[in-house]
């Protein structure tokens, strides 16, 4: 039980994908212009990581090593198309906004990375916990970056005006270079915070 919790929580801080492994950056940069698209894509990624991790782990004894990447990709692509169809059927507005980024979850290195590095060697339950943790960690990272960009850049959050009406909007953050700057600062801050935490741990021990 303890290991399940451990595998789940590591995705939330210790190994949070975009900031620790610098994985899945294209989508982090592209969809974080607004909260709603960030959460929408995050939800899709959670579903895909969980499904691919569970299936890969369940089939890990059957899959021959030489064709494993092909099998992984088939599984991941299936999960992604399910997400795409579901989104098209029930969240059409979101589907229109996210556009090409939904099919591109297939090549999000986070998903393949977890299948290759974790699910192929671990039991189904642990892989489920890992996939869920990684997916949620990814979504939270998207949400943090999107909050910063949307609130400071446009003065809104989930499309609701949060800044006073006189706020001019720092449009730079909504543009691609703003995404890079935002991400870089987040990476830096994460390292500062965890360096502080490590130092505290050492001092305590």
């Amino acid at each position: 039980m303890a290991s399940i919790v451990k595998e789940f929580t590591k995705g939330l801080w210790e190994e949070v994908p975009p900031f620790r492994f610098v994985l899945g950056l294209c989508s982090v940069l592209a969809v974080t212009t607004s909260m709603s698209s960030a959460i929408g894509l995050g939800g899709g990624v959670i579903f895909v990581t969980v499904m691919s991790n569970v299936l890969v782990s369940a089939l890990r004894k059957v899959i021959p090593d030489k064709v494993r990447i092909a099998v992984f990709i088939v599984i991941i692509a299936t999960a992604v198309i399910i997400v795409e169809l579901t989104m098209q059927a029930y969240f059409y507005g979101l589907y229109e906004v996210l556009g090409i980024w939904i099919p591109l979850i297939v090549v999000n290195c986070l998903v393949l990375g977890r299948a290759e590095a974790f699910a192929r060697k671990q039991s189904v339950i642990l892989s489920l916990a890992d996939g869920l943790g990684m997916g949620i960690g990814f979504t939270l990272s998207l949400a943090v970056v999107a909050s910063i960009r949307e609130i400071i850049g446009a003065g809104t959050w989930f499309g609701i005006q949060v800044m006073p009406a006189i706020y001019p909007g720092f449009t730079y953050l909504l543009k691609p270079p703003g995404a890079f700057v935002c991400l870089g600062i987040m990476l830096g801050l994460m390292n500062v915070v965890s360096a502080r935490l490590d130092a505290k741990k050492k001092a305590a021990a």
Binding site: P168, G169, F170, T171, Y172, K175, P177
Partner: peptide
């Protein structure tokens, strides 16, 4: 450049 991208009018 950042200011040019954000505040064209100003």
């Amino acid at each position: 450049l950042v200011l040019q991208m954000s505040f064209r009018g100003e």
